[in-house]
Structure formats: structure tokens, C-alpha cells
């Protein structure tokens, strides 16, 4: 049974909206206060990635790298070698978009505790268009051995995730978004690396989301109630390592799965869940996200609609899915 504390204001008109990256900015300043080994590096994007708060508080531990993402992560590797906890921050399109091999060799294989933090990930960067809409990063980072991949669902969770990765001594990837999105959790809600959370119990299908897409799943679940469909919602902020037990238990209960992410479903979060289910519990699944195509310019909400990633679109997909696919291996 879910005992997750959702934001009680979540579906009210005055729900708090905040960019997920803002939680990272606050979290980074907080971990800077706790641990003087924490240093931050940025590639000419200090304010928009929210590293500015850290820079103001700890100017001596902030390193401006300029527009050179390969140097960003390799200098961070050297700092980790020297015993520091480096947060290497840029936009996802450029890091890990441009510097993946350096991340692989000097951070993942080298097993150095660098925190690669990428803001402005996903389709929601909107008008900047396809070059800046990073959709492949989840796939790129989750294939790396040693790498932990976290996609927080809101700003509060991003703050908690920032603290958690500062303490785990491992290479980590933290994926953040630019746009304001609803705050779905509370300060008291749990966050632990490697854990998924059942936000809402259901019997007909498991809607599994990562990042801000979990909010869209909660919207879809509400719409589906009116259609007589009882959807379970599982929030999966850690894409790697996946919380196999929580995901498999949920799939076993409902017999159908839908995944949602603001990324390519191929190799992304949907890919990860498909692999898990394929290995342990073959289950009918549909994957919401980018379907092997690039994005394009548009307002973020227009794009969510255009690419059928809103709660409304997801509810329609679920209705069709539930009405056409039998439930597998459902526990009675």
C-alpha cells in the first residue's frame, strides 16, 4: 500500500510550481555548507543551471570552465582524484551530449565520484529546438557501468537527490529540467538512491514515470477514475540502479505497465523497465516519450501535447490499452 506523502495542494489551483533545477541549486548550496570537499564547476551556464547560489556562498570552491564540456568533466575527474566531490554542471545537450567518452573513461571506468549534473534536459526546453532538447542522455548514461542515474520528479526531490549523491562516493548523473513544474512531493516525502515509490495504489495498470512525467501520470490516473480504470502510479527517480522489487511487485499486481519519460523511450527509462520485465516478468507495456525522432521548436506545453505526453493523452492511451490487452499474471 502506498503511504507516500504527496503534496496535498497538488491538484488545487494554487499548487506550487518550481523548476526542478532550482531544487538542485538549493541542494548544492546546502551540501557545500555540510562538506568542504564539495566543489562546483560550470561551463559558462552558472546562473541558468542554478550554480550561482553556490558560487555566491563559496566563491573559492567554484571553478569557471568556459564553454568546454570535455574539459569540464575531465578537470572534475582530476579534482576527484585529489579527494574532492566535484559537481560538473552544464546543459544535458552538451554534457553528456558532447563529452560522453570522457565521462566513460575518466569518471565511470576510473570510478571517480564526479557528479555530472545536466540541466535543461528533455523536450521542455521548448523553443530552442531539437539541438538543445536532450533526449538521449538517459540511454547514454545508463549503459555506463558504475554510473548512477537520477531523474528527480520535482524541485524538492532534486534537492534531496543532490544531497544524496554528494555522500555516496560514486559517479552519478543527475538530470534536471528547466521549466516550472508542479511540486508533487513534500519535504517529508522519502528519497533514497535506488528506490521507487508507489504514489497511488491501483489494480488495472501500473503507470511508471521518471522526472516531471510522474506528474502527468498522476493527472492521467485522475482522468482514468472517471473511465472506471484504477491505475497505480509508481515514481521512479532512480533510473539506475532500478528498484527491481518495487517495479516487479507493481507489475505483478496490475499485469499491465506504461512508462513515461521526457526522453527517447528506446534505451531510456522505458527501455530499462522493458529489460527488467523481459527478464523477470514479461508484461504488456507501452512506453510514452519520444519515439525515435528528434524534437522541434515550440512552447513546452504545445510540445507535450504534440508529442502526446500530457496526462490527457496518456489517459487515452491507457484506456485503449486496458480495453485491448488482457492482464498478465495478475495476483488474485
Amino acid at each position: 500500500m502506498s503511504n507516500y506523502q504527496l503534496n496535498p495542494e497538488l491538484f488545487s489551483d494554487n499548487v506550487a510550481m518550481e523548476p526542478i533545477r532550482a531544487g538542485f541549486g538549493k541542494g548544492l548550496k546546502a551540501v557545500g555548507e555540510i562538506n568542504d570537499k564539495v566543489v562546483a564547476l560550470c561551463a559558462d551556464l552558472t546562473d541558468s543551471t542554478q550554480v550561482g547560489l553556490f558560487r555566491e556562498s563559496f566563491p573559492e570552491r567554484f571553478i569557471e570552465i568556459g564553454i568546454s564540456e570535455q574539459n569540464l568533466v575531465t578537470v572534475a575527474s582530476g579534482l576527484a582524484m585529489a579527494g574532492k566531490v566535484p559537481f560538473a554542471v552544464a546543459y544535458a545537450a552538451f554534457s553528456p551530449g558532447r563529452n560522453w567518452e570522457q565521462i566513460k573513461t575518466t569518471i565511470a571506468l576510473n570510478d571517480q565520484p564526479v557528479k555530472v549534473v545536466a540541466s535543461h534536459a528533455g523536450i521542455s526546453v521548448g523553443p530552442d529546438g531539437a539541438t538543445h532538447q536532450m533526449l538521449e542522455d538517459i540511454a547514454l548514461m545508463r549503459v555506463l557501468p558504475n554510473m548512477i542515474v537520477i531523474v528527480p520528479g520535482d524541485s524538492i526531490e532534486a534537492e534531496k537527490a543532490t544531497r544524496a549523491i554528494s555522500e555516496n562516493g560514486k559517479p552519478c548523473y543527475l538530470r534536471l529540467a528547466r521549466e516550472k513544474t508542479p511540486v508533487i512531493s513534500t519535504v517529508e516525502s522519502p528519497f533514497e538512491i535506488g528506490k521507487a515509490y508507489v504514489l497511488r495504489d491501483g489494480t488495472d495498470i501500473s503507470l511508471m514515470g521518471t522526472g516531471a512525467m510522474t506528474y502527468q501520470l498522476l493527472v492521467a490516473a485522475n482522468i482514468l477514475v472517471e473511465k472506471g480504470i484504477n491505475a497505480e502510479v509508481v515514481h521512479v527517480p532512480t533510473v539506475k540502479p532500478l528498484d527491481n522489487d518495487t517495479i516487479l511487485d507493481s507489475a505483478r499486481r496490475t499485469g499491465r505497465v506504461l512508462t513515461a519519460e521526457e526522453a527517447q523511450t528506446t534505451g531510456g527509462f522505458g527501455g530499462a523497465v522493458s529489460e527488467l520485465l523481459g527478464n523477470h516478468l514479461p508484461t504488456p507495456i507501452i512506453r510514452v516519450g519520444m519515439q525515435d525522432r528528434f524534437g522541434e521548436s515550440g512552447a513546452p506545453l504545445e510540445l507535450f501535447d504534440y508529442f502526446e505526453m500530457t496526462g490527457e493523452h496518456i489517459a487515452k492511451k491507457v484506456e485503449e490499452f486496458v480495453n485491448n490487452k488482457p492482464q498478465y499474471h495478475r495476483e488474485q
Binding site: 571553478i63 570535455q70 574539459n71 575531465t74 578537470v75 572534475a76 575527474s77 582530476g78 579534482l79 576527484a80 582524484m81 585529489a82 579527494g83 574532492k84 566535484p86 567518452e101 570522457q102 573513461t105 575518466t106 571506468l109 576510473n110
Partner: peptide
């Protein structure tokens, strides 16, 4: 001290360490 092979990354890593010192 490090893992290398793909060329061009060692100088940055060394610079990161030297920055720390």
C-alpha cells in the same frame, strides 16, 4: 593515478589535480 587510453584527457585531469593543490 588514472585510467587512460582514449587520447587527450590526461592534461585536464592533471590540471584538475593541480588546481586542487
Amino acid at each position: 593515478e588514472n585510467t587512460s587510453g582514449p587520447l587527450g584527457s590526461g592534461l585536464s585531469q592533471a590540471a584538475g589535480y593541480a588546481y586542487s593543490l
